[in-house]
C-alpha cells in the first residue's frame, strides 16, 4: 500500500532534509523545495515508510504529514 506524503507549503522552508531521506520519490527544485519525481501527489510505497516517518519527525518546520496516520 502506498501513502501520500503531504507538504504544508506555507510552513516548508525548502531546506531539503526530506529530499535527502527520500531520494526515491523526492528531489529538490532549484530553490530547495521538495519536488516529486513523478507528476501528481507524492506517493510513498510501503518499503519507504521508515524513512518517510523519519522525514516527518525531523523536518525542521514540521511541514510534512503522512496521509491516514
Amino acid at each position: 500500500m502506498t501513502r501520500a506524503l503531504i507538504v504544508d507549503w506555507t510552513a516548508c522552508e525548502g531546506r531539503g532534509l526530506c529530499a535527502g531521506l527520500l531520494p526515491e520519490v523526492l528531489t529538490q527544485d532549484k530553490w530547495g523545495y521538495p519536488q516529486n519525481l513523478t507528476p501528481g501527489p507524492i506517493l510513498v510505497p510501503d518499503e519507504l515508510r521508515g524513512p518517510a516517518r523519519q522525514a516527518v519527525r525531523m523536518c525542521p518546520r514540521l511541514a510534512l504529514r503522512l496521509e491516514s496516520e
Partner: peptide
C-alpha cells in the same frame, strides 16, 4: 548558491 543535492541515505534509521 543553489542548495547542494542531498546524498544522505546513510542517515536513515
Amino acid at each position: 548558491s543553489a542548495p547542494a543535492a542531498p546524498k544522505t541515505l546513510a542517515w536513515r534509521e
